[in-house]
């Protein structure tokens, strides 16, 4: 599944504008501790988190994650979006919880490893 299909299938809100959405998703990782995501996240994964501050962009960019999905209806800070667009890190949102969203992703074949 690529990012565009993900947005469509899960009716995600797209916070970052003008970014390419053809990248294929290579699994997922859920976590709110940045260093934990750095240690255990893998390239091309989707990162599911409640963190909305600008530092999530650096983590996603450095780990080459496919995109960040903010759960529980959280909205990114304006600065987060600006940095995401600059570093080309797509940021999406869902009203679902991390557990619920991860479960539905898993059901669609997107797994943890």
């Amino acid at each position: 599944m690529n990012l565009a299909e993900l947005i469509e299938r899960f009716d995600l809100k797209v916070f970052s504008k003008g970014l390419e959405l053809t990248r294929t998703i290579g699994g997922g990782y859920a976590g709110d501790l940045l260093s934990d995501v750095i240690a255990h996240g893998q390239k091309d994964q989707l990162w599911i988190t409640i963190q909305v501050h600008p530092n999530i962009v650096a983590v996603a960019a450095l780990k080459e994650l496919a995109a960040v999905v903010l759960v529980n209806g959280r909205e990114p800070a304006a600065e987060t979006v600006a940095r995401a667009e600059k570093e080309r890190v797509p940021i999406f949102g869902t009203s679902l919880s991390a557990f619920e969203f991860s479960g539905r992703l898993y059901g669609q074949g997107i797994k943890g490893s």
Binding site: D32, L33, L34, S35, A39, T49
Partner: peptide
Amino acid sequence: LGFGAGMGLS
């Protein structure tokens, strides 16, 4: 903010 996992140096 999600820091302080105690994993930085490791």
